[in-house]
Design a binder for these strands. Structure first.
Lengths: 362, 362
DNA sequence: TGTACCTTTGTGTGCGCACACGGATGATTT
DNA sequence: AAATCATCCGTGTGCGCACACAAAGGTACA
């Protein structure tokens, strides 16, 4: 026989106190029909009075339900920011394995109009219980969101947000603010208000991502407000013609030998870092985004000075947790979750990789 | 009747496959006696072959055990770094409430020799299942650790580490590295290698904490290696005589009007920030540690430029998680967990407070 | 007044696991 | 050969909850 009972409040206790069967209490808790008004009142009273908190683990165990989460991300290469997001999601799913959660990731081509909607439709056809998406443009994303809302499937946005589409939650960085912060740091590096070059990545004649544009806006805003004397150059690379990158830089620096400070708002700071390494130019001050392996290498070798990270692993993890808490634990969800803007240099990088590893290995 | 069974591997399956009773499987899993060698072999075989992962939530539910965690921290005021650590621990305990975990926090006086050992003894007398401690000096901590080891009670160190005492795990920041990193940032602020003043907090004739000393060492190491021309002044405040602080600064800046840049390795950067505010001196460049409310205020008002944070909330949370995973989930534990060294300024502070809030509210 | 149908209520079983208990088996003693 | 003891093994019950099903009560209509 068991003694030493837990002092948890159980359904049984409530039933006893209210003078009804456990079935009735159960029905009230789950808002199911089949309960008279009077019983309902009684039970709700006791429920509140005893501040009943169900044991969600026992609940999940008993319900024996399975959950399918779906995720829609941009197509990406192995070595990428998005990989870390996926790793974070997979890690979280692993943590919740006893709740029968499955994750299905599919991809869309962010440069092909219609791709998002097409993949979105396919995804919805599988009737997932919850959805995570990195939204495309508002127009592209709209139709998928409408279908989700119609079917009452909760969805969270990751990386970038479209407020008007009203997701359950959003996890990502404020690009504008991160550009603003980057400017503060860069302005410290740019002594005597020396000029700065902005390296950009162009796809089909326009900036490759919204993030890139928003960060640059934030950056320019800070410069405008605080050190308008800094002259800003722009240098464009073309996604489709990476073989020209070196020539582009060579020409630029020939024409502007006085420029000794640069920043890029995409994740490819290593293009510049590796070039400097190659031509053996020291002391060019450089900032960029995201802890890609090649960026980290440049950081450690000193060809990139600072990287701003946006915690992709945490983002992925948090999105899964969000759906989990909403669907299984039925908690309140915070709608906007901006990730911290973290500055990383040679001197503190190890402790980020450490946290990274920790997240991925346990 | 239930259909749609989970495809989890259950004890029953193992028993079926191995041709033994569930009781036997159970005994093998828990390493209990009462199993013949042959049965044990059989079960272990099947166990491995099927890669059995027990459902820890069901397990916790069935075992119905209670866990008492104890925590020993330095005495502190309400408005402090340690408060955030406590908040993090409380939050984590709340998350695990369905596992019957209780947390008991007690305090020692870090300035009174013998206090740690005394409080440690009291704590151990309550026979906790796991312990979290912010260690005092090695000598002071030793006796408590020996008792814990004897009783086989796992303990984790928080904030600072003593490797030789071999804790289950450590969560905290590398003070040396964080000083080193601080130097990199400060050297960017100190134009033309201008001089820098180090503000210190003295207690009974020596530095108030190990953290303070280690950070300063790291700081000096960077300066030595990278910009030895920067002249470093020191300015001491006395914990017991805070009323003299203003006079001390006044005298110093009168004697050294050229000093326009400072740093402190304790959490009281606001002493300087608020002084600058008071005498209405603008443009003094200042760095410090920890997101105390008064520091945040200085940051936002511009009297402190940068703060290095050490994620106290996460530290507290992680310590509880660590004990939880060790005792209940029986996972492998990573021994050293250095927290990221994060740089915070007016421009990115909001996103840290946000994360902070998130952690504390959900 | 009986039948059909809907609403309300109670009970029993199972989720995956832990653990107490009692029965079976074999070895050792008197 | 009976009694004692240790080791091994199977079963039953419960953790807190969800849900199917059956039973009971109520309302409406012929």
């Amino acid at each position: 026989m068991r003694e030493n009972k837990s002092e948890r409040i159980r359904i049984k206790d409530i039933a006893l106190k209210a003078g009804v069967s456990v079935g009735t209490v159960d029905r009230v808790i789950h808002g199911r029909s089949g309960v008279s008004e009077s019983s309902k009142k009684k039970v709700e009273e006791i429920l509140k009075q005893m501040n009943y908190q169900p044991n969600m683990y026992a609940s999940a165990l008993a319900s024996n339900k399975k959950y399918n989460f779906s995720c829609l991300l941009p197509l990406h290469t192995q070595e990428d920011y998005w990989m870390d997001i996926e790793a974070g999601m997979r890690h979280a799913v692993g943590m919740y394995k006893d709740f029968n959660i499955r994750l299905n990731i599919s991809y869309y081509d962010q440069y092909e109009s219609g791709s998002f909607a097409k993949e979105g439709k396919k995804m919805i056809a599988t009737m997932p219980d919850g959805v995570i998406m990195a939204p495309s443009s508002e127009d592209e994303t709209m139709s998928t969101v409408l279908q989700l809302k119609e079917k009452n499937i909760p969805f969270v946005f990751i990386d970038s947000n479209i407020r008007s589409l009203n997701p359950l939650s959003f996890y990502g960085q404020s690009s504008h603010s991160s550009g603003y912060f980057a400017a503060r740091i860069l302005s410290l590096m740019a002594e005597h208000n020396e000029p700065v070059v902005i390296f950009r990545l162009i796809y089909d004649g326009r900036l490759g991502s919204n993030q890139q544009r928003n960060r640059e806006e934030g950056f320019r805003e800070y410069i405008q407000n605080n050190c308008p004397d800094i002259k800003l150059y722009e240098l464009n690379f073309y996604v489709k013609n990476p073989e020209n990158n070196d020539k582009i830089m060579e020409d630029f620096f020939l024409a502007h030998p006085e420029v000794n400070c640069g920043i890029t708002f995409n994740s490819k700071a290593y293009i510049i870092g590796e070039y400097m390494q190659k031509i053996n130019r020291k002391g060019f001050k450089m900032m960029g985004y995201d802890l890609l392996r090649r960026n980290v290498k440049c950081l450690k070798e000193g060809t990139v000075d600072f990287i701003i990270a946006q915690q992709p692993t945490e983002q992925g993890q948090s999105c899964i947790e969000c759906l989990f808490e909403h669907l299984i634990l039925k908690k309140e969800i915070k709608a906007y979750n901006y990730m911290p803007i973290t500055l990383i240099s040679k001197e503190n990088i190890d402790f980020y990789l450490d946290a990274h590893l920790r997240t991925n290995n346990i």
